[in-house]
């Protein structure tokens, strides 16, 4: 287990980041800080997905075979030490018209999933912030314990005045 943690240190760092975000969500009582923590947690999950989709020595998933070449400036120095490296660099430059299969691309599927998730994430974040604003207007505070206290007193006494 220990060696795996150090070999795949990318995953380990992402897990640390994820847990940091989760800690902010759990421990802080300020609702806006909670939302920031949720956002950090969310971004870290995106990082986990993208890290899994990375292929050593790969290029961004923009096909280079038609000469338009969105991604040919990038990734040439990614020569990997893994066995797949003969697929990565050399033939890609030689391969002219039809040899798109010989260029190594990173996995496009996580990119698609995360791309839409980011936009949906900001939309749901806006909902959360709108709720926070309304809570603040009604309770006069966005600290969780203050709100709970006010609610508690209201339920016991029927009034908080």
């Amino acid at each position: 287990m220990i060696s795996a943690v150090f070999e795949n240190y990318h995953y380990s760092v992402v897990i640390i980041l994820m847990m940091t975000g989760l800690y902010v969500v759990f421990s802080s009582r300020n609702l806006i800080k909670k939302l920031v923590g949720l956002s950090v947690f969310q971004t870290s999950v995106f990082l986990l997905y993208i890290t899994i989709g990375k292929v050593a020595g790969g290029q961004p998933p923009i096909l280079v075979d038609d000469g338009h070449g969105g991604g040919h400036g990038d990734g040439k120095d990614h020569h990997a030490e893994v066995a797949t490296n003969l697929l990565a660099g050399g033939e890609a430059k030689v391969g002219g018209a039809q040899h798109s299969a010989e260029v190594l691309y990173s996995n496009p599927l996580p990119h698609v999933l995360i791309l839409t998730a980011i936009v949906v994430g900001v939309a749901t974040l806006a909902i959360g912030l709108a709720l926070v604003v309304r809570i603040r207007e009604v309770y006069g505070s966005i600290e969780e314990d203050v709100i709970a206290d006010l609610d508690h007193r209201y339920n016991l006494e029927g009034t908080a005045d």
Binding site: V5, E7, H10, S12, I52, G53, K54, A56, N107, P110
Partner: peptide
């Protein structure tokens, strides 16, 4: 718990991992 699970993850950058 997640660190424990890292051992089962595919190696970073593996072109032949199930995910890729």
């Amino acid at each position: 718990a997640m660190f424990y699970a890292v051992g089962d993850m595919p190696a970073y950058g593996d072109a032949h991992s199930p995910a890729n």
